Amino acid sequence: MNPETRSSSGKSLLGVGGLAVLACVACCIGPIVAFLGGLGVLSAVGALWVPALAAVTAGALAATAWVLHRRRRAAACGTAPGPVDLGLPTRSAP
């Protein structure tokens, strides 16, 4: 084999490899940039919504406490304790 042919063949393979790398970068850079951009936008929106979410959480906790208080009050103000009819058959006296 001629050394010049071998050298030329190595350079062409290096060029083809370089073109393959550039094609891969051109193909994959779009989805990667889109994903990272979307992640950044979601982080910014989340940072803006933190005070609103804190207010919603405080409101939900207050509503839960109010409902539990009303249920306890309703249970305490229920009917007087006494015998409860369970609907079971009873024995008749002979």
Rank of each mutant, 00 (worst) to 15 (best):
A75R: 02
R70S: 15
V16N: 12
S9I: 14
A23M: 02
F35H: 02
C77I: 10
G40E: 04
C24N: 06
V33N: 00
L48P: 04
A55L: 08
V33D: 03
L13V: 15
A74F: 10
A26L: 10
R91Y: 15
G59T: 07
A63N: 08
R6V: 14
L42I: 11
G82V: 06
I32N: 08
C24M: 08
R72H: 11
V16Q: 08
A47Q: 11
A93Q: 13
A63T: 07
V45R: 06
L88Y: 10
C27N: 06
L48N: 07
P94A: 12
L42C: 07
A23N: 05
E4C: 12
S12K: 13
R71S: 09
V50Y: 04
A74S: 09
V56G: 01
P89K: 10
C77Y: 12
A62P: 01
A55H: 12
P3N: 00
L22A: 00
V84E: 10
G59M: 09
A52L: 14
L36D: 01
I32R: 00
R91N: 13
F35A: 10
L88C: 13
S92Q: 13
A62H: 02
L42F: 05
P81M: 02
V56Y: 07
L42V: 06
V21P: 02
A74I: 06
T79Y: 06
A60T: 09
P81T: 09
D85I: 08
T5H: 15
